[in-house]
């Protein structure tokens, strides 16, 4: 039996009907066409599906869509302002912090949640906060540098 799901995604309110077993990632990708959020595993262990749910980074493959009822979700598609990129996105480009890009949405959303909570993380804090977000291409160091740089940029912008 389908149930009603009211969910705000990237600022837009959607009123949907979903099966109780439907995962949040399925709603985002299959129902809303927000394919920026990826899936890289069936074991809740890659982080490619990370989105921000009421301010916290969550793996959207681990959450039932109905658990997000009445809540706010931000996906990678919701970060830029038109063609103006969010500083984290720009910083990922400038530091070559992706290669194939398949993990990138998840990395960026996790980094966003991290910087929202801790605007000035150390390298070590980034390593610990981001651990579990797998990337098979980059070797992580360039992502860490992008996040450090993004933290600076965000603070500069706030000045």
């Amino acid at each position: 039996m389908k149930r009603e799901l009211k969910i705000t995604v990237n600022g837009d309110l959607y009123d949907l009907y979903v099966e109780p077993g439907t995962l949040l990632v399925e709603v985002l990708r299959d129902k809303l066409g927000l394919t920026g959020t990826k899936r890289g595993c069936d074991s809740m262990s890659c982080g490619a599906c990370t989105v921000i749910l009421d301010g916290k980074a969550v793996k959207s493959c681990t959450i039932l869509a109905l658990q997000a009822n009445g809540k706010e979700v931000t996906t990678v598609e919701g970060l830029a302002n038109g063609s103006k990129l969010h500083p984290i996105q720009q910083s990922f480009i400038d530091h070559w912090a992706f290669q194939c890009g398949f993990c990138t949405s998840g990395q960026i959303m996790a980094a966003k949640a991290l910087l929202d909570e801790n605007p000035n993380p150390t390298r070590k804090e980034i390593k610990y906060a981001m651990n579990g977000h797998l990337c098979r291409c980059t070797g992580y160091n360039m992502i860490i540098e992008a996040i450090l740089d993004a933290a600076n940029r965000i603070q500069e912008e706030a000045k």
Binding site: G36, R39, E77, L85, Q89
Partner: peptide, 21 residues
């Protein structure tokens, strides 16, 4: 000289389309 990836914008905004998508 360092050049940015020509697909950078697509990849950081989620616009890059993979077969999977």
């Amino acid at each position: 000289e360092d050049a940015p990836n020509i697909d950078g914008f697509a990849k950081v905004t989620g616009q890059a389309i993979y077969t999977f998508d």
